[in-house]
């Protein structure tokens, strides 16, 4: 009995320690976003301070935050939508026709450092006069979203019994019809997982927008970067902007976490 209590206590100590390590930067960011520049750089760090909303005011008034927010939403939204359009049939085909090599190839594209794509993209998009266009950004963000969709959905489809679409095909459906009428409606949780994760990864992406976008299509992470100037770093502004950027991602995750966990473990169990 005592042993059980002890092991419980140790377990929760470990949980708290891990949570502290993981959450510390987040808490630091959150508290700093309400501090003045002086409070932020003071040593030792101030645990108690007079909170200010000046940083947030700066983010939303001086910076065109709403524009960047819309840009991020457009880029993420289209990248995810197009990735679903291409990725769902691809994942289905990988699941049903055992196209393992193709699946690995898609994963490889994801594992290669994104920066190695940037140079050719830069040249291609400049020649096509597509720099600072949504088209270029959406295409580049599909490199992030598509592999996630394919990988999550192919293991999800594998878990759906083949007999369902075979039955539909004997009943008179083409394979495409069976996919649309039977398989897709059963894939809700998987699609929500893939959508949430790929949207968040696109939302958080910094590098592609930094290179491929200019004033018109700049996305949110670049906006944070705006607070870093040669003269000084406006830490309060950076932190407030970071909080504002993270909020939608965290909200999405919390709303859909039930599905995300289910979708991810489903893939994990299937190997």
């Amino acid at each position: 009995m005592n042993k059980k209590i002890l092991s419980n206590v140790l377990f929760y100590i470990a949980v708290v320690l891990i949570a502290l390590v993981v959450l510390f930067p987040f808490l630091w960011m959150l508290s700093s976003s309400f501090k003045t520049q002086v409070d932020i750089i003071s040593w030792p760090p101030k645990l108690f301070f007079e909170p200010t909303l000046a940083n947030y005011r700066k983010v939303f008034e001086e910076q065109d935050f709403l524009k960047y927010f819309i840009n991020s939403t457009i880029v993420g939204g289209f990248a995810v939508a197009l990735s679903l359009l291409l990725g769902l049939p691809a994942a289905y085909s990988i699941a049903r026709f055992a196209q393992k090599k193709l699946a690995v190839f898609i994963l490889l594209a994801r594992l290669m450092p994104g920066i190695s794509f940037l140079m050719p993209w830069y040249i291609i998009f400049s020649r096509l006069d597509l720099m600072d266009s949504y088209v270029a950004l959406v295409l580049s963000h599909m490199l992030i979203a598509l592999p996630i969709v394919v990988w999550i959905m192919s293991s999800y489809f594998e878990a759906i019994p083949r007999e369902l679409e075979e039955s539909a095909m004997v009943d008179g459906a083409t394979r495409q019809h069976a996919f649309l009428a039977i398989i897709l409606p059963l894939s809700g949780p998987g699609i929500i997982t893939a959508t949430t994760l790929s949207f968040i990864f696109s939302w958080n992406n910094f590098m592609f927008s930094q290179v491929l976008s200019m004033e018109k299509t700049k996305t949110l992470p670049i906006a944070v970067y705006n607070f870093l100037s040669y003269a000084e770093v406006d830490w309060g502004g950076v932190m407030a902007a970071a909080v504002a950027i993270m909020a939608p991602a965290i909200a999405l995750t919390m709303i859909f976490q039930k599905y995300v966990v289910k979708g991810l473990t489903m893939g994990a169990v299937k190997g």
Binding site: E166, M169, V170, D171, G172, L186
Partner: peptide, 20 residues
């Protein structure tokens, strides 16, 4: 011929009912 043109009906071991 694909299954849909053969005009056969099949009952599967696991029933294969469409859950939705």
């Amino acid at each position: 011929m694909p299954p849909r043109e053969r005009d056969v009906a099949m009952v599967f071991q696991n029933y294969a009912l469409y859950p939705h």
